[in-house]
């Protein structure tokens, strides 16, 4: 009655020995599950809300309004001559994507505990799904940015071609760090509690509410080790031509994000095999 394809795959189950390859093929074979997980995460995160996907717009916009009020209007922080609301929003966009990935991927194993202990799937699929959902929210929020640029009469420059690259760097850094946190969180739940605080501090170490020009020249190299510095700088440079020294910073971001992603993947892969026993 059924037409089963005679797919002859053989599985070898053996003890864990050292660092293992990433088994990307296994993830490819589970792509349908990834699709279902993405769909679930989208569906569930806006289930029982009246605004639905509207929250993807509202969250960055509300944050922008609050920041503009406190830091732009009350504290009078400089913004390199760009109107403060759009200055802050351009920084918030990649930042919120990054923060979302770190917290989402970071808690993905503990949050899916019931699945992880009951059914096999390449564990990487859970953080990957969160990555896709986060990126979709980001794309929606970009709509507001375009609206603001029209309002402030800022024309798109030729430099926007770097934006997709910067988004990729953000994803690499966020997912990489998230995977580290997911792995460590399984070993020790303290990490889960420390993570929101980490993100909060990290935000102040990133030029979102203030321009990089406030940082003393001597400290900039160290400052740029934070991969989000280069990304935010790059975003502003591409949109507003603020004329910063974003090229070297972006290069640094690319390297740091790459290291984070690769090391995160391996550490996660390493922990993945024993998650069901320790989670």
């Amino acid at each position: 009655m059924s037409s089963r394809a005679p797919d002859n795959h053989t599985i070898l189950i053996k003890p864990l020995q050292g660092w293992e390859p990433l088994r990307l093929r296994d993830i490819w074979e589970h792509r349908e599950l990834l699709y279902f997980l993405i769909w679930r995460d989208i569906k569930v995160s806006y289930a029982r809300t009246n605004l639905g996907v509207g929250w993807a717009l509202l969250k960055p916009v509300l944050t922008m309004i609050v920041f503009t009020f406190i830091f732009g209007w009350l504290t009078q922080l400089p913004s390199d001559g760009v109107p403060y609301p759009i200055f802050v929003y351009a920084g918030l966009l990649p930042w919120q994507l990054f923060a979302r990935l770190v917290s989402g991927a970071g808690s993905s194993m503990v949050a899916n505990e019931s699945l992880v202990t009951k059914v096999y799937f390449p564990r990487l699929i859970a953080p990957l799904s969160i990555t896709v959902v986060g990126t979709l929210d980001f794309v929606i929020a970009v709509g507001v940015l375009l609206g603001m640029m029209w309002y402030y009469q800022i024309a798109l420059t030729a430099g926007v071609w770097v934006l997709p690259l910067l988004v990729a760097v953000t994803i690499a850094a966020g997912l990489g760090l998230g995977l580290w946190i997911a792995a460590l969180n399984v070993l020790c739940r303290d990490i889960g509690h420390a993570q929101p605080f980490l993100i909060q501090c990290w935000m102040f170490a990133t030029p979102i509410i203030y321009p990089t020009s406030l940082i003393p020249e001597a400290w900039r190299t160290l400052y740029a080790l934070n991969p989000m510095v280069g990304v935010v700088e790059g975003f502003r440079e591409a949109l507003f031509r603020t004329g910063g020294q974003s090229d070297s910073m972006m290069g640094m971001s690319l390297i740091v994000a790459g290291v984070l992603l690769v090391s995160g993947l391996y550490v996660f892969n390493r922990i993945e095999q024993s998650i069901a026993d320790t989670v």
């Binding site: 089963r4 599985i11 189950i13 003890p15 009951k118």
Partner: peptide
Amino acid sequence: ILSRITRPTRGYAVISGRVGSLL
């Protein structure tokens, strides 16, 4: 172990065919 939820400490298992598990 057979459903690949956890790894064995010793020994091995070989499974030929598509696996479904209902734990």
